[in-house]
């Protein structure tokens, strides 16, 4: 990636370019972007849980209005998009590099062994990531893009007109195929996070006898609770649509 060196040379940051293009620098970008996404997910989840409020979508629509109009949130959202793209592209580049490092001929017998239960996840982060990226693309197309393009019906709440995002979401989750797609994707995200959470700390060099076991524990809890929270929403919405409860 000499282009980065060339780009940063005029501003006197050759060392920074070298750092970013080193193996550890690349991993650091993965770690930081991943951690940022990890921070974003609970915020997103809290908003989504508004879908479950039985007020015909009022609190959810207010929440989506807030998210799309608050200047601070808007700024952060651009960072978010950047993180997703960076994490994806960097991840794919690293994947390609690692494949090349392993060489054309692999082992005839594979018997991967590691110190924890997430070894398989760790070795397959790229595949998991690709599935997650596809999910994000579908997800963004389905809701975010529709909203941006204004193809959403409007609704009046307390005298003000808001975009009624609630309606397409509920509509989508009445389709069992979509529900399944969301739930499976959340499981994949959970697996990805189970390794990614603690791994990002390791990459940052934050490994300590006293704290690492706790970080790993929190990582496992997080990787279960957050995707579970996301997955439960389409199921409940679907159930409501079908008058299960």
């Amino acid at each position: 990636m000499s282009w980065m060196t060339n780009a940063l040379k005029p501003i006197g940051l050759v060392w920074f370019a070298n750092f970013l293009t080193s193996s550890i620098g690349k991993k650091l970008l993965m770690s930081l972007s991943g951690l940022f996404l990890i921070l974003f997910l609970p915020v997103h989840l809290i908003g989504n849980l508004q879908l479950l409020t039985k007020d015909a979508g009022v609190s959810f629509n207010l929440y989506s209005y807030f998210m799309t109009h608050n200047p601070l949130i808007k700024t952060v959202s651009y960072l978010l998009y950047f993180s997703i793209i960076l994490h994806t592209i960097q991840g794919l580049l690293l994947w390609r590099k690692n494949k090349m490092a392993k060489g054309k001929i692999g082992y005839a017998v594979s018997a991967l062994r590691g110190d924890g239960t997430n070894v398989k996840a760790a070795a397959n982060m790229a595949w998991l990531g690709i599935i997650i990226f596809v999910f994000i693309a579908v997800h963004m197309y389905q809701f975010w893009l529709q909203m941006k393009l204004g193809k959403v019906p409007m609704v009046i709440i307390e005298g003000t007109e808001y975009k009624n995002l609630y309606e397409p979401v509920v509509l989508a989750f009445s389709n069992p195929g979509f529900v399944l797609f969301y739930v499976v994707s959340m499981i994949i995200i959970g697996i990805h996070l189970n390794h990614g959470f603690q791994s990002s700390f390791q990459t940052l060099g934050l490994n300590h006898k006293k704290y690492t076991p706790f970080i790993k524990y929190i990582g496992r809890v997080y990787a279960f609770i957050v995707p579970f929270g996301f997955a439960i929403i389409p199921i409940i919405v679907y159930g409501r649509n079908n008058l299960w409860w």
Partner: peptide, 11 residues
């Protein structure tokens, strides 16, 4: 290649 904290090395 790059480390992705798989820990197979340690094992």
């Amino acid at each position: 290649g790059n480390c992705s904290n798989i820990t197979a090395c340690e094992a």
